[in-house]
Amino acid sequence: MSNALIETQNLTINFGGHRAVDDLSLSIEQNTFTAIIGPNGAGKTTFFNLLSGLLQPTSGRILFKGADITGLSPMQRVALGIGRSFQLTNVFPTLTVHENVRLVLQSRERVGCRPLTSYRRFPELIAEAEQILADVLLLGKGHLPAARLSHGEQRKLEMAMVLAMRPQLLLLDEPTAGMALEEVPVMLELLTHAKARGESTIVLIEHKMDLVTKLSDRVLVLVNGALLTEGTPAEVAKNPDVLKAYLGGGIRREATA
């Protein structure tokens, strides 16, 4: 219990007969950058769903700064400082791109209901949302409904939203999934910037090994819901078990590129 921001103890979840996360006990240190890799179906997203409160574990506990948060709702976990992005883009489709980001800021700044005050009375939120959109190169698209963005642009919006939360714990689920290769550098830059700002402890699920190597202090390899191995990116890359797990798990080509 040194300096762990979040810690799981024997975390387990069953879907019917299938055990997606299996007796997982690990801890993530404050102000570190951790990557989670593993073949498709390894339970990485499910692990995030447990940490963020979307799913309740069958057994086991989750501690955040030493306090048990296993029973808390997603909303309560956000209030504690846990923010996540989604592997499958999960935005507000009919609202404008700008409004998607502004809503994050409205929550972060705890504006409250104010049922008879215009939202325009908070111009600093509008301005900051614009700045954030500029950072992810979406400024020109701010007025469009989010559904009209291309897939890659929606991934950037998804990322912009979770970064705007400025959470203490940032859970990023495959931010580059399905993105065109030429768009990946923007994502890398965003991640590098978020890391450099040092406000958040970051956990990243990612298949692109070059991205993982550049950013991570530590890599966890998840297979069949359990920890196969962990170490620095270099150590993990050398581990023959990892390659075997990947080949056995039918990982996509991009992961080993």
């Binding site: 963020s52 999960n90 507000f92 929550s107 939203m161 939360m165």
Partner: peptide
């Protein structure tokens, strides 16, 4: 638009 995401923004 998306009740689940609203919850994950902390609402």
């Amino acid at each position: 638009d998306n009740e689940q995401r609203a919850r994950f923004l902390g609402y």
